[in-house]
Design a protein around this nucleic acid. Sequence first.
RNA 1: GGUGGGAUACUCAAGCGGCCAACGAGGGCAGACUGUAAAUCUGCUGACAAUUGUCUACACAGGUUCGAAUCCUGUUCCCACCA
Length: 404
Amino acid sequence: MENLTIILMNVQEQLKVIQQNADKIIGLEDIEKRLARGKRLRIKLGVDPTRPDLTFGHMVVFNKLRQFQDLGHECILLIGDYTATIGDPSGRSDTRPPLTPEEVKSNAKTYLEQAFLILDREKTIIRYNSEWLGKMSFGDMLMLTRSMTVARMLERDDFAKRYAENTPISIVEFLYPLIQGYDSVMLESDVELGGSDQLFNNLVGRKLQEEIGQEPQAVLTLPLIVGLDGVKKMSKSYHNYIGFNDSSKDMFGKIMSIADETMWVYYKLLLLLSDSEIAALKKEHPMQCKKDLAKRLVSRFFGDEVGKKELENFEAVFSRNEIPVDMPGFSWETLFPGKPEAKLIDILIASNQFATNSEARRALEQGSVKVNQIKETDGFSVIPKPERDIVVQAGKRKFFKIFG
RNA sequence: GGUGGGAUACUCAAGCGGCCAACGAGGGCAGACUGUAAAUCUGCUGACAAUUGUCUACACAGGUUCGAAUCCUGUUCCCACCA
């Protein structure tokens, strides 16, 4: 079945798919040669299970792996479980504590659950680098370090920068690219995927394979996607990300909050639209395009029904200033058992929608609170136990309902 | 191993004995304006408290003082330079 796909699609057609959205491809001719002789390519994507929450940044790379899957190639998702238990030192900002094997295992599990929202579960081969790294001796490791020089390491952009700025670089960090490269040797991969920041590391794999006499892997990097701020790359540490685990409402809202320019990038990298398709979209009203983007992406993760629902919700709340179709609700009796009335401030606090009481107070002071669509600034105004539902709103995002 | 420098709220970064819950910038939140945004302008941004009150905070532990983020002592961690 898979082989059939390969036969049906000729080399040039495949190369076109493979090259779509690629940032850099090192060894394109190697890919072409292997395809020409009918080889089923082995694709490697290494993932780091220290942070199990996937963002749309990961989606760009997963999309590419998915494309390879659809072409019928052999796709390996390599979980860096061994490396995670050592601790990833790359954090200039925060040092990540090494994880225990149990943590790694459970992280990997949640990671995979999310990854399969994009990947084809049936066609994904899962491997763990502890399979071989766990068996390596110190001597083996020393052998490996012979293939790399300090000067070459310092070619890597971020190392060079940090060295110049006197920011510390730990020796383990020098070891990481080697370890990653060794993974490629063990897997005998034909192509390694990664974000554009992984170029150097992935090239180390290519080099090691060559030294050992394997056919060197090609390296295909994908652009890093820009985050919600429209400036920095999407990353959890910048708090500018959209996560696979976000609620459908948050996902929709976050997408709507991106800048217009960012939207086209998302169309291209996340939905894989072609340039001509995007050019056509640009003729439409940007707001319409953005709503459509949000709806399509939310549908991708939550299904068409939810996508449609969130669109309606958004239009109601933001375009028509209405209340959303669904929101959290509390019954009066659970909040104020036996009480015939309550102060507005106490209602806000009891609803648990505010991180602190002060925050609730501030919302009132700033005039963002509405009760049944009517603005309220006095926290001490008394609300009687309602006969019918009342809707409380704070800002554009917080809504909740109290039923009597 | 030696010498110097540093540790302040989400981040960066002032403050160097009272006027400090702590300048300023970024971020976040809210309001105005808009096409959802972006940009712009304005306000808020430790907690608790029915206005000006209390508590907790400036690495940690003590001390000096009427009073300390600010001075002293010790501890921990970080950085640079020299070995």
